[in-house]
Amino acid sequence: MNRIAQLFKEKKNILSIYYTAGFPQLTDTLPILETLEKAGADLVEIGMPFSDPLADGPTIQQSGQTALKNGMTINLLFEQLADLRPQLSIPVILMGYFNPVHKFGMERFVEQCRKTGVDGVIIPDLPFDEYREKYEALFTQAGISNIFLITPQTPEERIKLIDKNSNGFIYMVSSASVTGTKKEISEQQTRYFKRINNMQLASPRLIGFGISDRASFQKACDYAAGAIVGSAFINLLNNEGNNPEKISDFIQSIKKTN
């Protein structure tokens, strides 16, 4: 069983943190991961920066631009993650757009994930059908999860298809938006969370986009296995850098139950 499956088997109210590789400093990637594990994050998504991030709002866009300016590449990311295991035990997912991965070569990419101990991958613009046709066997063989997204607009039949073909979890986009939209969880969103929860899917779900604080995290946890915080954490890094104390405070402030 890989580390992602293990986590979902053992824990509820999972807090996943997204941050961009090579940001704010080029060499921050692994140290931030260490800090996050110590601070009590359950799962981490490391963003691979891309010049044209279609699904991201200004916060993550800018962190990606900074990382690219710093000299971040996929090659370098795998070098930085060479010592990831066994010293850290937190499950790690790489998230990024298809073009850099395509350029790197999917086979090579999956092999590097396996070698460094990366557990899963999210590539939002890799079509579901193309994944199944060309890459599924590769991922399965390497024991790497490929995580799919669903949105409020995804038809029910497609959700079932995605559920059947998921391993790890389903990434539930909380509303029709790009990342970093900071609003309270609306009635409409709650209805969507309930609707999906009532579908009795086999795969656990994490809710992402617009989760920024304890209130939104708790709300998400009412209807899913947990949630993903991205832009709010990038904002913290932007202001404080890799500051273990501040990062720990941030994680605790979100996880703290009433």
Binding site: F50, D52, T73, F98, N99, H102, K103, F104, D125
Partner: peptide, 20 residues
């Protein structure tokens, strides 16, 4: 060379890391 831009697989100008 071959890559993905704006939702389409086509020729595009990119660097060795796949940045457009």
């Amino acid at each position: 060379d071959e890559g993905i831009i704006h939702g389409s697989k086509t020729y595009l100008m990119q660097d060795d890391d796949g940045q457009i």
